[in-house]
Amino acid sequence: MIEGRGITKAFKQVQALRGVDFVIPRGGAVSFIGESGCGKTTLGRILAGLESHDEGRLLRDGEPIKDFRPIQLIHQDPYSALNPTRTIAQILRDPLRLRGHPFSKAEELLSLVGLDPSYVLSRYPHQLSGGMRQRVVIARALTVDPEVLVADEAVSMIDVSLRLGILALLRNLRETLGVSVLFITHDVATARYVGAEGELYVIYRGTVVERGPVDTVLAGPVHPYTQCLLSAIPVLHGLEVPGPDRLVPDEPLDERVEPSGCLFEPRCPFATPACAQEQPLLSRLGDTPQDHACLFPARRHVVAVPAR
């Protein structure tokens, strides 16, 4: 189990993370969603040991994490994640050797991620499609027997018809290898596909504003920011009808404004004077089935529902 407690991080003036707690159970799926710049990517990079944090603790089974190798990052861009001058065999050989695995494990891993080793091994990355490259990236992460895969927008640069295959692979790896997946995205539907029963963390300006099982949050989001985010998902007219309570934020995000109360107050359609005074903490105020950080939580139906 991997845990983060009170993680904060500032880049110069911008407070990227303002004390985030999270738990990634073994073999589980956890998703971070939010707008670009909300801190979700920074959090993933901190967890993968690629970025430092200012305050807070990262724990693995209760012990502070020193070796980040069990936490492997799957990059967004499979085109830059593989060294163009090395063949797939060379790319897999060195990390395997490092762990004392025989090279034959490379073939095993490639088959596991749905690639034909005889086709792939001798090739250079540019000879493979985006989807195949991302599978190689996943296979490479698996060479060091990781506990968690941190997938940061791992399918956004891949052809639409190939995306679901990668998502299905991540889901299968959870089952077959017991690897946990931290899925970072702005697309909730993909997060749901990787783990509908996992926890969804909605992150806004470096804080978690809502947290609960994916399907619970989708069925009845209570934080207005979550509601705005879910309302923005395109509706497949013809197959779906839009949710009745769709919501649009009052203002665009202005990071220069540092509210004293709720961070979402300047944009919130339901803001009250109280919201500008008090910064709500993550709780189950109002007996909601999920955690949230809103003084006036109210369930709204914003997600599109199937027609018919």
């Binding site: 639409v160 190939l162 539907a189 749901r192 509908a196 497949l236 997600v303």
Partner: peptide, 26 residues
């Protein structure tokens, strides 16, 4: 049909979405 089936959905059974096999041609 394959393209639309490969879109993960927000509600209903997760496995309604089905991957499209193969790779688009260059």
């Amino acid at each position: 049909r394959g393209l639309i089936n490969a879109i993960p959905r927000l509600t209903g059974p997760v496995d309604v979405a089905k991957p499209l096999p193969g790779t688009p041609p260059t």
